[in-house]
Design a protein around this nucleic acid. Structure first.
Lengths: 160, 160
DNA sequence: TATTGTTATACTCTATAACTATA
DNA sequence: TATAGTTATAGAGTATAACAATA
């Protein structure tokens, strides 16, 4: 397919309401994946506002909840968060009484991470809010399509 | 499905190499869409390094090239870029001689945007680099699956 | 009074270098 | 010498308020 060539001369008169043509962006993966990610995160923000949790905080709570006792660098590394940035993340979760660091017996440099009871309780409510977002996506795409999408995205995440 | 409950007691001894279990994140849309978007943008960064174009700059050049003569607020608005931030974007593209602002005759507040000849030339090379990324995604997902993915992402972007 | 482009600014995310304490 | 956590910091990206010129 030949690339669409732009006209060199600006069009002098265009109706104000004429929509901007983004068709050549909508046809590649990179553009809609960015817009879709932003839309999903904005929807997340609205649903999680009562819980005061960002997507990164939610994923951290889930990772600790499913992997209690693991050290900071394991959890942060699995989530793709740089170690220095994950320190502030844990500081905040600990300040809010949702997670705690305890010195590892085996390696006294490391912290073993775990959720507090309050963290477990909040995570239960958060998982319910997350399930509602998935249900909304089900309604937008269809349940089977949502699962297909997740499979594609997980494969795409390994593009590197 | 009952939510997976985390064990309260940290596990004392774990092999160093045991992978962190992120299964409950991989099963929802919000997490893999973020990881996939980052992977696609990292791949973009490598492919576009010789052209010195970010994804936002590329999408701006495409939008101007396909819609010459439109004003800043139309192009920036269609791309979801805040007006103050789009000023710096245009400053840089103009500084590099890729695009230009000319005062609109109809409305002397507005600038009509257009690519320069150098901008057209760079955009041709950029579209070729973009086509290579799509081909790489084709190889990772399959050509038909890539089109299905794009359709789902465009629908998801309207979730708001 | 509203709109276009602009400036200034702030806040979040992310990335890197260098330190400390342990191993 | 290497690793876990930390501090400080810098750079993107994104958001809002307020201004001048024009409608």
């Amino acid at each position: 397919m030949a690339p669409k060539l732009a006209r060199v001369e600006p069009v002098a008169e265009l109706e104000d309401s004429a929509p901007v043509d983004l068709a050549s962006l909508a046809g590649i993966v990179g553009y809609p994946i960015r817009r879709a990610q932003m839309a999903v995160f904005e929807d997340f923000g609205r649903r999680f506002a009562p819980l005061d949790l960002t997507p990164a905080q939610y994923s951290t709570l889930v990772a600790i909840g499913d992997n209690p006792g693991r050290k900071q660098s394991d959890i942060g590394g699995a989530l793709g968060i740089q170690r220095p940035n994950f320190v502030a993340m844990m500081d905040e979760l600990e300040r809010r009484g949702l997670a705690e660091r305890t010195r590892s017996g085996a390696d006294r440099r490391a912290y073993a991470l775990a959720l507090t009871l309050a963290g477990e309780a909040l995570l239960l409510r958060a998982r319910a809010a997350q399930a509602e977002q998935e249900a909304a996506i089900d309604r937008a795409l269809g349940s089977n399509e949502r699962r297909v999408l997740i499979g594609m995205l997980n494969r795409l995440a390994k593009l590197t």
